[in-house]
Write a protein that binds this DNA or RNA. Structure first.
Lengths: 327, 327
DNA sequence: CTGTTAGCGCTTTCAC
DNA sequence: GTGAAAGCGCTAACAG
C-alpha cells in the first residue's frame, strides 16, 4: 500500500506528493498504536521520580522532556513516593506498555527493583546509581560539592562541623558523606562522630537532627545538611530555641532547591540559604540525550556523566563563633 | 483461546486456575499495545500543564495521578510553556497515541486549540475553562477568594486597593478581576482604574506593576496580586525602593504556591505572604475522578466543580497607613 | 462453557 | 518502482 511510502521506500516523487496531499486533505493520521504493535517501539519513555512535589525534580524532568520531546518521544511520568511496592508496580505497568526506556530519578535501587529492570529496555539513572557502575548514570559532582562547602566554611574559620546526611540507601548521600569524612581529614580537622547524623531529606528530619545536636555538650559552629529542606528544618529548630543563624551557627544546604527560575519563580532573596547548586536542568538534558542515543543505537559502553556544581553563598553562613565551642 | 478467559467470560473455575497458574509460571504478561489496538482504549490520559516548574502544578498533577493511577491509568505529562504552537503539537501527538482523555491544567484556550479537542476523547479543564460552559471543569472559587481578601483588607482599614491581574486569556484571571470590581462596589469603595494593572503571573511582571504603581500620584495602601510570584515581585520592588511591606503597604498573593507539604517542603514561616489558598491536590483529584467516570460512562451532563478556598493571613498585610494617601 | 476465527492499522517482505 | 499479503498480540463474536 502506498502509505508505507509516506516515510521511506522507493516511490516516484510525483506519486508521493499526490498521496501526501490526499492524506492531508482527509486529515488522516497514522496510528501510533498499530505502529507500536508492529515495530515494538512506542516512542515513549518512562520517567520515575521520587516526588514531583519536591522542587528539584520538576526541573530535572523539564530537562529530560526538553530533549526527548524534541525527538518526538513522550514521557510517562510517575511518582514513586520512595515506596518500593509502588516502584515495582509502576515499572511493571510501564514494561507492559512497552516503553522504549526508563529514566530513574533518585530511585531507591533495591535488588528486586534492579532485577525487574534487567530484561527491560535501556535505563539511565539520575542521582542514585546501582553499586556496579555498569549502567548509564548522570549525577552531580558530589566530591566537588563537599569540597566547595568545606572550603567556604574553613575560610570562615569553622572547625567543629556537623554533618546531617541523607538516607543510607541513597548512593548520592553516601558519596557525600564519604567525601565529607575525607575532606575533613584532608584539612586536618577531626570528625566528631556524635555530630554525624542521619536524616531523610525532609524538613522534619532537619528539626530532629538539630534537636540531637542541641543536646550535645558542645555545639558545632557549622552544620552541613543533606539538602535545603533539612537545612531549613535545622535553622527553624535553632531559631525557635534562641540561636541565631548565621550569627551563632552557620548552616548550609544542598541542591539549591529554590533556585531562581528563568521565568521568575523562587527569587533568590526569599530563600537565602547558603547551598551548593546542582545543575538540575542539565542533569535531565544529559539523561535524555543518553536515552535517545541508547534507543537509536543499542549497545556500547555505559556512560557515567558527572556534572559540576557551584557554591551559592547566601545568608546562612558567617564567621565561626568561638564561644560556641564551650556552649 | 483460553487467554480471553483470564479476564471475564464463561470458564470453569478449575480450568481458570490452571491457566492462571501456568501463565504466572511462564511470566507471561499481556500486551497493552495489542489490546489498545484491538479495543481502541489505551488506559492512558494526557495531562497538559503550563509549567511543571511552577510549584502549584506538581500538586495538582499529584492529585490527578493519585486517582487515575489507582485505576491503572498512566499519565502522559506534558509541558506547554504557555506556547500555543507547542500546545497544539502536543495534543496532536497525544491524539495519535490514542489517549483516553485529556486533563488540561491552566491552558490557554484559543479557538484553534478547542477545535482540535472537539473530536477527541473527553476533556476536563482545571482552572481555565472555555467560554461556553459545556465541558467538564474543576476550579477554585474565585469569587470567594476575592471576598476573603477584600474582607481582610477592609478590616485592616484599606480603601485604596490596587489590583494586578493575570493574563487576559486566563478565565480565572478574568473571573477574579470581575469579582474584584463588584466586590469593591459592594463595599462602597471606588476602583481607581489607574491602579488596575495587567501582569502575566511572573515575578518580573510584579516588579513592573510595582514600578507603575510607584509612579502614581498617590500610592495605594494595599495591592492584590494575581498570584504569589507577582506578589513577590511587587514586594521586592517596593522594598528595594525604600518602602516597607507590610508597614507602608500591604500586599497579598494568590494560590498559596508555597504551601506547607505533608512531607515537609516549603515550611510556611519561610514564605510569609498573606495569600488565598487553592485546594490544589483536591482540584487534581476531582478532575481525575471526572476523567475516569467519563471514560467508563461516556455521555451525561458536563460537571462544573468549584472548590472552596481559604485565606492565609501571614506577614505581608497590616493596618492601612493613612499617610500613604498623600504620598 | 469452550475452541476457532477475523481483524484492529501498521510495516515488511515478496512477487510483479 | 509498485501492489499484495502476512502477521505483530489481542479481543469479540460465533460456532460447536
Amino acid at each position: 500500500m502506498a502509505r508505507a511510502l509516506s516515510g521511506k521506500g522507493y516511490v516516484e516523487e510525483e506519486r508521493r506528493r499526490l498521496i501526501q496531499q490526499t492524506v492531508d486533505r482527509l486529515g488522516y493520521r497514522t496510528s501510533t498504536i498499530a505502529r507500536a504493535l508492529r515495530t515494538q517501539r512506542t516512542s515513549s519513555i518512562g520517567v520515575l521520580i521520587a516526588d514531583i512535589t519536591n522542587p528539584i525534580f520538576p526541573q530535572i524532568v523539564k530537562g529530560i522532556d526538553e530533549v526527548v520531546a524534541a525527538d518526538n518521544h513522550t514521557m510517562f511520568l510517575c511518582n514513586t513516593d520512595e515506596d518500593s511496592q509502588k516502584q515495582q508496580a509502576i515499572v511493571r505497568s510501564l514494561l507492559d506498555r512497552n516503553v522504549d526506556g526508563f529514566v530513574l530519578v533518585s530511585q531507591t535501587l533495591t535488588d528486586d527493583f534492579l532485577k525487574l529492570l534487567e530484561h527491560g529496555p535501556p535505563c539511565v539513572f539520575i542521582n542514585r546509581r546501582p553499586q556496579a557502575p555498569v549502567m548509564d548514570y548522570v549525577g552531580p559532582d558530589n566530591a566537588q560539592s563537599i569540597r566547595l562547602l568545606l572550603d567556604h566554611l574553613c575560610e570562615l574559620g569553622h572547625e567543629r562541623i556537623a554533618y546531617v546526611a541523607g538516607p543510607a540507601l541513597s548512593s548520592t548521600a553516601q558519596e557525600r558523606l564519604t567525601n565529607f569524612r575525607s575532606g575533613m581529614a584532608a584539612r586536618g580537622l577531626a570528625v566528631d562522630e556524635s555530630m554525624v547524623l542521619r536524616g531523610n531529606y525532609s524538613f522534619e528530619s532537619g528539626r530532629v537532627a538539630a534537636e540531637t545536636l542541641s543536646a550535645l555538650e558542645s555545639l558545632p559552629t557549622a552544620v552541613i545538611a543533606a539538602n535545603d529542606f533539612v537545612a531549613m528544618g535545622i535553622i527553624d529548630y535553632f531559631q525557635q530555641h534562641g540561636l541565631k543563624v548565621p550569627e551563632d551557627l552557620s548552616v548550609t544546604g544542598f541542591d539549591d532547591a529554590f533556585e531562581m527560575q528563568a521565568d521568575g519563580h523562587y527569587p533568590l532573596r526569599f530563600e537565602g540559604i547558603t547551598t551548593v547548586d546542582q545543575p538540575k536542568r542539565d542533569l535531565g538534558r544529559a539523561a535524555g540525550r543518553i536515552m535517545l542515543q541508547r534507543i537509536s543505537y543499542p549497545g556500547g559502553a555505559p556512560n557515567s556523566i558527572i556534572l559540576p556544581t557551584r557554591l551559592r553563598i547566601r545568608n546562612t553562613t558567617a564567621p565561626a563563633q568561638t564561644k560556641n565551642r564551650q556552649a
